[in-house]
Design a protein around this nucleic acid. Structure first.
Lengths: 233, 233
DNA sequence: GGTCCGTGATGGATGACTTCCACTGCTCCT
DNA sequence: AGGAGCAGTGGAAGTCATCCATCACGGACC
């Protein structure tokens, strides 16, 4: 599980026993730790958004909420569940408007694990149907549906995954090998022409003029462009 | 706050330090304590229903869930939030379909208070709408009944739970594994084909054309769609 | 103790999807 | 202008997920 951890001393956090960082590490989470000054690159975050946000607030609850307010405005963190680690003394200052969960320090790894499972259970239902829009194209990633001007596309699974990936990473050209590894999976063994064929069927189903959104870049690969942005260039 | 407490030894419960009973007493709650055999009068309960249900399960989690199942069927407890007190050792056996929140014993009163406030906030925000409508389908979650165009469906328990879950989370595709963990319980280990079977039986009972509301998404799973929304394709 | 009902497992059939192959057409470089 | 290489096209075969029929098990109820 990918976790974004905000803590006082990011470097030393995991070495402290009974800290949220140590517990997350023990649970085998993929943790990226940052301080409350948030020294991370927002683009990096967008490419690989975390599934969970953990705020190691302890005594510094006000500072943590201030940071959380900033984090909530970042698009890649929209709808991400949050767990706030807090001391017993500061429990009374907790603010539940965020609708998330809290845990006491010292952290019991088994409890943290249970709260993760609980959040997963609660949020699975809530995870807002996130939609990706590019020009006339609209993709409902949770419903596995794609629309062009409200006309529903009848896509196969692989076609949908390819279109979704291109749309989520629009503007950038992807080689066939990259697409195979990212859309088909890292262990894929096969010819790169498979990508061509899926692009072809995708274009056919998109229809004119939306098919022009998938551009072929000779000797490199494919990219999906926003027609509005593309038109001025 | 009126609390119904289910614990092993109702008479002595409050005298034990760090027990849920003692913590509730310290918080000034109006506690009525009963054993797991539930020796209370249902009429009394109806006249003065509790606002919270606390299960002091500790090691006896299975027994607590069994009791909870019985309690859930009592009309005066419909929609009452539940907190399960459990030991660290039994955390891994928690089933989140049943309880709304949990707390570790020994209980820290301040934490219990915080969890009460959290539950209060959560329940105020989502005042359980016990009737779900999707197209011609109408589900009465508290009455365990489902209707299609006012024709009552004769569903089994598992079929009803599956339909309810899909209806409450319509539009989103769920994998078989997700459905197993959310509808059957996360501890369920078995073939994913079980989901197929129940979907098939559900479709048969829904009848045409309502059966088309449950869509199969190849390579992913199932979802329930609102036919009105779906019609734009 | 027998029967019915709910639940989940198994194996085969079906049909859709993915992939590969051979060919054609196009683009860019020389 | 010619050629090499890359991308698009059509068809065909293999694979795989889903659906379906049937059966086995366990509990509830009579």
């Amino acid at each position: 599980m990918k976790v974004l951890l905000i803590t006082l001393e990011p470097e030393r956090a995991a070495s402290e026993p009974e800290s949220p960082a140590a517990a997350l590490r023990d649970l085998g989470c993929d943790v990226r730790a940052f301080g409350f000054d948030l020294g991370f690159d927002e683009d990096d975050l967008s490419k690989d958004p975390p599934q969970l946000l953990v705020l190691d607030a302890r005594e510094r609850l006000e500072m943590a909420y201030s940071t959380l307010k900033t984090l909530r405005d970042l698009p890649p963190l929209q709808g991400t569940p949050v767990i706030v680690a807090v001391t017993t003394q500061r429990l009374s200052s907790l603010d539940f408007r965020a609708g998330d969960d809290f845990i006491l320090v010292p952290v019991v790894p088994a409890e943290l694990y249970a709260r993760l499972r609980q959040l997963d259970w609660r949020f699975a239902a809530f995870s807002a149907a996130d939609r990706v829009k590019v020009g006339d194209l609209e993709i409902d990633t949770s419903g596995y549906e794609a629309f062009v001007r409200d006309r529903k596309l009848d896509l196969t699974h692989q076609e949908f995954e390819l279109l979704k990936f291109l749309a989520q990473n629009r503007g950038k050209v992807w080689t066939r090998e990259q697409l195979l590894s990212k859309v088909w999976g890292y262990r894929y063994f096969g010819g790169t022409r498979t990508v061509d064929i899926h692009v072809r069927r995708l274009r056919a189903k998109l229809g004119s003029p939306a098919d022009a959104m998938i551009e072929t870049v000779r000797n490199v690969g494919y990219k999906l462009v926003d027609p509005i942005v593309g038109a001025r260039g």
